[in-house]
Simulated assay, not measured.
Amino acid sequence: MPTDPQMPELDALFAAARELSADDWGAPERFLRGHRARAAQARRRQAGWLSALLASAAVVAGLSVLRPASPDLPSSAAYEAYQGALGDGW
């Protein structure tokens, strides 16, 4: 097998990659801290949309309760409207 002049450098590089450093030991904690922060931000954003939706529903319900009631027509008025439109004996 021919010898490559870069082979000792690659061996040293691979050996260093296999050794754990202080940054490697702290990586899971940094990942979990960032993940928890992103999850909390997503929950706050979702709660904001939910509260806006509930507020909109409350406004619509309040407006429907406060609007003036339409006068009810007697049933004879409906009968007269049908008779006028379709003729007698419909």
Rank of each mutant, 00 (worst) to 15 (best):
M1F: 08
P2E: 11
T3Q: 11
D4S: 14
P5S: 14
P5T: 13
Q6F: 09
M7D: 07
P8N: 15
P8H: 11
L10Q: 10
L10F: 04
L10Y: 09
L10V: 04
D11M: 13
A12K: 05
A15S: 08
A15R: 08
A16I: 01
A16E: 04
R18V: 04
R18G: 03
R18H: 10
E19I: 02
E19H: 02
E19D: 03
L20K: 11
L20D: 07
S21C: 05
S21A: 04
A22V: 05
D24A: 14
D24K: 09
W25A: 08
W25H: 11
W25V: 06
G26T: 04
A27P: 00
A27D: 00
P28A: 08
E29L: 02
E29V: 10
R30H: 03
R30F: 09
R30C: 02
R30L: 03
F31Y: 15
L32P: 01
L32D: 03
R33H: 10
G34A: 12
G34L: 12
R36S: 14
A37G: 12
R38G: 00
R38N: 00
A39H: 13
A39D: 12
A40T: 08
Q41L: 15
Q41C: 14
Q41G: 14
A42H: 09
A42L: 15
A42W: 12
A42V: 02
A42E: 15
A42G: 15
R43P: 00
R44T: 06
R45S: 15
R45F: 11
Q46F: 07
Q46G: 04
W49M: 09
W49H: 11
W49Y: 13
L50Y: 07
S51A: 10
S51W: 04
A52G: 09
A52W: 03
L53T: 12
L54Y: 11
A55G: 13
A55M: 10
S56I: 07
S56G: 10
S56V: 10
A57E: 08
A57R: 08
A57Y: 02
V59I: 02
V59P: 00
A61V: 05
A61Q: 09
A61T: 09
G62K: 13
G62M: 06
G62D: 01
L63C: 11
S64E: 15
R67D: 06
R67Y: 06
R67V: 04
R67L: 03
P68G: 00
A69Y: 06
S70C: 04
S70K: 04
P71W: 05
D72Y: 05
D72I: 01
L73D: 14
P74T: 00
A77T: 03
A78S: 14
Y79D: 12
Y79T: 06
Y79Q: 09
E80L: 07
Q83K: 12
A85H: 13
A85P: 12
G87H: 07
G87L: 06
G87F: 08
W90I: 06
W90A: 14
W90P: 11
